[in-house]
């Protein structure tokens, strides 16, 4: 049991600490550890777990960690896999963050941050662009985007309402038409 927990911790620590670019970039690394190396689950079940990760809100990496951790070693497994995923990088982030606050008046740090901020703006814009390339299959998707922009800037509504409304719209517009095609 302890061996299993340790393996879970190490597997998710390795996957998480080698994946730059946020949760989605960790998915292939998690697959290498859990399917190829430790064979806790096969390709098909990994695809199921990933589908759940994509369907639920929140970070994908921690959802995969919970799913696989529970399967391998129950609740303790969930804990071990989550600790491996989260703790090492959070520790470093907190230390760097406190350094930034502590030295916020140093001209060196100010100069570094001044140069890094435009980079971050572009990185976030690029994320929107990359995700957008695959997310506008039809005119109705553009319609949703235009309505979202209008609501955000004209009505100043909380995005929660827009997200829920878009999901209901998606259910009505895309969810039912394909129902007959489902084999079961």
């Amino acid at each position: 049991m302890l061996k299993k927990l340790w393996d879970l911790f190490i597997a998710f620590t390795r996957a998480s600490n080698l994946g730059f670019g946020g949760g989605p970039s960790l998915v292939p690394l998690i697959k290498v550890e859990t399917v190829d190396r430790y064979q806790w689950l096969d390709n098909e079940e990994f695809a199921d777990a990933l589908a759940i990760g994509n369907a639920l809100p929140g970070p994908i990496a921690t959802i995969l960690a919970a799913y696989i951790g529970y399967k391998v070693a129950g609740w303790l497994g969930v804990l071990a896999a989550l600790l491996g995923t989260v703790v090492p990088t959070v520790f470093i982030v907190v230390l760097l963050g406190s350094l930034i606050v502590k030295h916020s008046n140093s001209p060196e740090l100010k100069a570094m941050l001044m140069a890094v901020r435009p980079v971050v703006v572009i990185l976030v814009a690029q994320t929107a662009y990359d995700m957008g390339k695959k997310s506008f299959p039809g005119y109705s998707s553009w319609g949703i985007a235009v309505v979202t922009v209008a609501l955000l800037y004209l009505v100043d509504i909380h995005p929660a309402f827009i997200i829920i409304a878009a999901m209901l719209f998606g259910w009505a517009a895309y969810g039912r038409t394909r129902k007959e095609k489902v084999r079961n």
């Binding site: 994509n54 369907a55 995700m131 997310s135 506008f136 299959p137 998707s141 553009w142 949703i144 985007a145 979202t148 995005p159 827009i162 997200i163 878009a166 999901m167 209901l168 719209f169 998606g170 259910w171 009505a172 517009a173 895309y174 969810g175 039912r176 394909r178």
Partner: peptide, 9 residues
């Protein structure tokens, strides 16, 4: 369908 609807948002 719900996820497809929310993606543009």
């Amino acid at each position: 369908g719900m996820l497809k609807g929310v993606r543009p948002v």
